[in-house]
Design a protein around this nucleic acid. Sequence first.
RNA 1: GGCCCCAUCGUCUAGUGGCCUAGGACGCUGGCCUUUCACGCCGGAAACACGGGUUCGAACCCCGUUGGGGUCACCA
Length: 472
Amino acid sequence: MTVVTRFAPSPTGFLHIGGARTALFNWLYARHHGGKFLLRIEDTDRKRSTQEAVDAIYEGLEWLGLNWDGDATSQFERADRHREAVQALLDAGKAYRCYCTPEELTQMRETAKAEGLPWKYSGIWRDRDPSEAPEGVDPVIRIKAPLDGEVVINDLVQGEVRVANETLDDMVLLRGDGSPTYMLAVVVDDHDMGVTHVIRGDDHLTNAFRQYQLYVALGWDVPEFAHIPLIHGPDGAKMSKRHGALGVDAYRDEGYLPEAMRNYLLRLGWAHGDEEIISTKQAIEWFDLSNVGRAASRFDFAKLSNLNGHYVRSGDDQMLVDAIAPLLEETRGSALDEAEKALLCTAMPGLKERAKNIVELSDSASFYVAKRPLNYTEKARNQLDEDAAAHLRVLASDFDQMADWEAEKLEQHVRDYVDATDPAVKLGKVAQPLRAALSGTTVSPPIFDVMVILGKQETLARINDAILATNF
RNA sequence: GGCCCCAUCGUCUAGUGGCCUAGGACGCUGGCCUUUCACGCCGGAAACACGGGUUCGAACCCCGUUGGGGUCACCA
């Protein structure tokens, strides 16, 4: 049997982090088994569904690199098919029309609550004759669920879970206006799409029992279920927009790399021994539902950040240049030319070692393509004192005479200069002003590497700018 | 509240009855490296929620307690 999984988000405006992990697990499971990973948009609630929201889901998945097979299915467009399934149930006497109005139901619920009784639809229309139907009420269709016995689900993550049928009531399948409910639509769609494994958030576990009853009523095979635990915020409470439940686009904007997100999300709730750094290829090979934990986990930005740093450090130079280019152009206000991009690519090995995300990488790279004269940070300006000016003047003229513009030679020269200067000065006493002059900051890649990447002409020009700026 | 699920360092986790005086990672922390900042390296503090069983033996099995979470719509 070919494995078919699906990700079925409702278009709420963005692909949030929990959904992203659910999608990842479904994707990994399908890829691991050489099966299919399908996408279905649960857009039956027309009020909350917009094309922008659907596009946000597409973009989120694409950014994460979770490619789905075939075209995405729109649940809304399948309403006729959903009604057809209900008609079959009606014909078979497994569903019935209920003429209770929403107001009556609300009333019943409140009464039950007031008396401290558990609420459950009584099923009063279950066996009532249609001739007793009141005038002017559009009935809903409810399933005629079993009254006794129990539903047992062998969940691939949660294990055996069972619930007594008597605690479940006759759920609504078709609303008064004839539109299908979520419970109905999911079952019909999963069946029609040939879904073999329903992998979704823990919050759907109780839905699984009712859906099980529907599968049975429809005479269909019940798919395997795997309810994965939810992701909580750093404080242990349910994820909210305040802490983490952002759209994946927000993570992208904050400089996280898709491979880092995949790796982090994978390790949240799943493990393969002590492995921490797991490539996507390796993940596909190793992924298994039996290794998914059963407890909810908290979202930890520090760990994500650390992982992201790893992927930035080991990232391809050109890929990283492409990633920071838009940010650099944005802050500088002008486009980067090919020479500048090439320069950044050469500088990348020294840059990526020091950044833990794309935004930082962009910031730290900006001095390479900044226009002279540089703007100095306060700390950099403090480096450019009278002593510094003196050193820079000497070094500028020395550098001007140097034939070989190589890092080792430059470093050796500066070290010799430091040693020869009396009273003894530390290398840092000269290197920091140099760094300030060349980068405008006090933090940069090794300064002699910077000189080489910048080139002799630009280096000398920036040093002279700095000497002028010192006013000494 | 009813029903359901869960419970190992601060966090993510390894652990499936003896290999556990509980391992790894992030974070925290002491040190080394060093032209800055990182990276890297060496070291440290830090957990089996509690109480009963079962067993020669329990982090692992059972029961209870406590604590957390989910769900109870003509939303999805």
